[in-house]
């Protein structure tokens, strides 16, 4: 139980960090984010719940060293990443590793729809310039769109992309964990990025959306 941690001593920062752990709203919120995060990667309700539970328990043991909620959040997520990597490692043996995983035929069709036979973009598919997604317009709504786009990735692409970009594993590590060749890894990441950017562009960065985005930014 977290009670021990909650009644533990104060932080070095002199603030009142442990309040946050007694704040049911904060904890509930954090937990929800973690479950969502774990579920996306593990695609298994039970495994996700387990990983979150373990990560939270581990984090609460050290909770006294956190001065702020945001620091605690960062810490908890870094532990969760380890738990997820661990769970993936175990599950890897269960997943039949067909060379590139996801339906090769469907993937080819997806690419063919983007490029002409001469290898250049179809006009309608040509990426356009995104305005300012890095500049603090990452609203709640944007993250919902991002979430939906991630969920739209074929399973293997989603897993590899998240290992690379969320857990920030190096290529070699992903290859050995998932038993992939380097060139397969590159192809999978390429496809994942292609799908993600297309999804984001059409559901968020399309010219119409951009107008509303600018308006929001002005508020």
């Amino acid at each position: 139980m977290p009670d021990d941690a909650v009644t533990a001593q104060k932080s070095q920062g002199g603030e009142v960090p442990l309040e946050s752990l007694q704040d049911p709203h904060f904890l509930q919120n954090l937990r929800q984010q973690m479950v969502k995060f774990a579920r996306l990667q593990l695609r298994d309700e039970d495994l996700a719940e387990d990983a979150v539970q373990e990560a939270l328990a581990g984090a609460l043991k050290n909770a006294d060293s956190f001065a702020r909620q945001s620091a605690l959040r960062t810490w908890v997520f870094s532990i969760l990443k380890y738990k997820i990597a661990d769970a993936l490692r175990h599950r890897q043996r269960v997943i039949a590793s067909s060379e590139l995983g996801d339906d090769e035929h469907r993937e080819q069709a997806f690419m063919d729809a983007l490029f002409k036979t001469n290898g250049h973009w179809h006009k309608a598919e040509r990426p356009t310039s995104w305005s300012g997604p890095q500049g603090g317009v990452q609203s709640e709504h944007f993250w919902r769109v991002f979430d939906a786009c991630l969920n739209g990735l074929p399973e293997k692409q989603a897993r590899v992309f998240m290992m690379r970009e969320f857990i920030e594993l190096e290529s070699e590590e992903i290859c050995s964990q998932l038993d992939l060749t380097t060139s397969n890894l590159y192809v999978i990441l390429y496809r994942a990025r292609m799908r993600l950017r297309k999804c984001l562009e059409s559901s968020w960065f399309s010219p119409d959306e951009r107008k509303t985005l600018r308006k929001e930014g002005r508020k």
Binding site: R126, S129, W130, P133, Q134, R197
Partner: peptide, 20 residues
């Protein structure tokens, strides 16, 4: 634009992973 966007994707993914 694509080349620029792969970098943006990386940044977004990391923000997202850090609890948004």
């Amino acid at each position: 634009n694509f080349a620029h966007q792969v970098g943006i994707l990386r940044g977004l993914a990391r923000d997202y992973a850090r609890g948004e």
